[in-house]
């Protein structure tokens, strides 16, 4: 055996989840990949059934933007507050971190509330036709992801406040931010598909 390569190991290494590409980062990236695939297959189902129908799509006319437009804006702002918090974490600005996380959490809850109002205002039900089934499946699936994100934000905020997670080991916050950006991005895809595209093809269905 040759002498040990001096270049590789005998130097100080950080202990624990330090840096960006921690195993947790890879894990959450893989999780996001698989969850994004679910959204992709839901949207595939939506377009597939739209392509097969001769009825108006959506069946009861264009969806109102009264709740969904503000909720989209809220989610976009929450991505910004999340980014602001995560940056603050890396810079060691803890007040910025706490306030950013709390703001993101509250905006997430606000989005869920607005989506409930949106559901209340829709004239169709989940069992009144394939369109309604898809609409509620897609939006509910997204609300569930947001609710999970809100719970995760609550946990991470608590752990930061308890002093478990500090700027040197910020990867937990980085990873949560990554998940939150995914939630926002998935909503943009859902919003464009369900709420905006029917404005361009007002009657839906094949020509």
């Amino acid at each position: 055996m040759t002498a040990y390569d001096e270049r590789t190991l005998p130097r100080p290494l950080p202990i624990g989840p330090a840096g960006y590409r921690t195993p947790g980062w890879w894990g959450v990236l893989a999780l996001i990949g698989t969850e994004a695939a679910v959204f992709a297959y839901l949207i595939f189902s939506y377009f597939y059934l739209q392509s097969q129908t001769s009825q108006p799509w959506p069946p009861s006319g264009l969806l109102p933007l009264r709740w969904s437009a503000p909720s989209t804006a809220i989610l976009l702002v929450s991505a910004a507050t999340m980014w602001w918090a995560e940056r603050g974490m890396r810079l060691g600005a803890l007040i910025r971190l706490y306030s950013g996380l709390t703001l993101t959490l509250l905006l997430g809850i606000a989005y869920i509330v607005l989506q409930c109002f949106d559901w209340r205002g829709e004239p169709f039900l989940a069992n009144s036709g394939a369109y309604g089934s898809l609409f509620y499946a897609i939006t509910a699936f997204h609300v569930l992801h947001t609710a999970a994100g809100v719970l995760i934000l609550a946990a991470i905020t608590g752990w930061c406040a308890l002093g478990y997670i500090t700027p040197r080991r910020h990867s937990a916050v980085t990873v949560v931010a990554l998940y939150w950006y995914f939630v926002v991005a998935a909503w943009i895809a859902v919003f464009i598909t369900l709420y905006l595209l029917p404005w361009i093809t007002p009657h839906g269905g094949p020509p």
């Binding site: 189902s45 097969q52 069992n127 009144s128 036709g129 369109y131 309604g132 089934s133 499946a137």
Partner: peptide, 15 residues
């Protein structure tokens, strides 16, 4: 009672 695969309500078995 959702209608994803029910052709009489806009669903499709081929989905």
């Amino acid at each position: 009672g959702t209608q994803f695969f029910n052709p009489s309500a806009g669903g499709r078995p081929l989905l």
